[in-house]
Design a protein around this nucleic acid. Structure first.
Lengths: 174, 174
DNA sequence: GCTCATCCGTTGCTAGCGCAACCATATGAT
DNA sequence: ATCATATGGTTGCGCTAGCAACGGATGAGC
């Protein structure tokens, strides 16, 4: 499937260059959008009460809300983060009184993470904002298109994971 | 792919109002996928000759390949990055002999960025890898679906930008 | 009981990222 | 011409990010 999509109809708003730009490839589009979404999140929660919570922390909070006391490594794996990173995110959350860590009884290597009351308050307080924002983000997309979008993203995610594990497990030709 | 795909098998024809899991919402999916794509890029270029180029640098390179000597701020704006960040990315690229900076003649505040020969070599050398990877990433998506994906992502990007500029320009009720 | 491999969390390193602040240059107003 | 403002780039700060490496804890082999 060639990428020769050199359509010349640049009747778009910007009209600077044709649409076959490299930046228009989904991969880069995903990168850019991810960055923009992060900024939007940060500014929104800042406006809404000046809560000092990053999107990364927020995803941890929602996961813990679904099931409290998860293992730290579990949280890392669920979001495809490495353990050091999750360790630091949780450190930040602990200092903000969002979670507390407790060593597991049976296996003292593992650490269980629990929500604090403050975290639950924040989750409850920001829920409507989250819903509102969601609606705004996907405005202009029909339900069906949203579903297709999720499917496509999951597929790319899976392909990426497959390519990564290929790199790991594949023995080099040398 | 997923470790536990235990979502209840609701007839996902149309009912399905809520996204079954919060992480399945496109926004978080975009975040996760963006991270994974970045790692894949880094490992691929590492395998392929151990080139020390990050995806962020690579996008700058392709932009400069399309038009050399762009202003630094121009590069930042084109990728929705702030100027400090682009400054540091370019610093890293300069130290890796990928670009060189030159103050503009007419306006000595501005800096023009130029590709080095080494950068052009790298771009040429990695082009086939990029194409190969592209095909693999989007495997399973029909041309039409890819187009829809790009459209959806661009729309979300635009919505995010709109929400951001709303926050900027909106006068607070106080 | 002891050793070794493994697992889990942390620390160090480098880099991306946005924001605030700073400095130099350029432009506009008076 | 002078001052004020705007623009462009950099530095400092804190967070995210992945990787390498280390130390503690566990479990398996002996």
């Amino acid at each position: 499937m060639a990428n020769d999509k050199k359509m010349k109809k640049t009747a778009d708003g910007k009209g600077l260059l044709q649409t076959s730009r490299a930046d228009d490839a989904p991969a880069w589009l995903i990168q850019r959008t991810a960055r923009l979404l992060r900024v939007l999140f940060l500014r929104l929660v800042q406006e809404e009460g000046g809560i000092d919570v990053t999107p990364e922390m927020w995803t941890v909070l929602t996961r813990l809300l679904a099931r409290d006391g998860q293992y730290q490594s579990e949280l890392a794996a669920a979001t495809y983060r490495d353990r050091p990173n999750m360790s630091r995110i949780l450190a930040g959350m602990e200092s903000r009184d969002l979670v507390f860590r407790r060593p597991d009884q049976d296996d003292r290597r593992k650490t269980r993470i629990y929500l604090t009351p403050r975290a639950r308050e924040i989750l409850a307080a920001t829920a409507p904002l989250a819903a509102r924002t969601r609606d705004r983000l996907y405005e202009g997309l029909k339900k069906k298109e949203l579903k297709a979008l999720r499917r496509a993203l999951r597929l790319i995610e899976a392909n990426t994971l497959a390519a990564l594990s290929n790199l790991d497990g594949e023995a080099p030709p040398g």
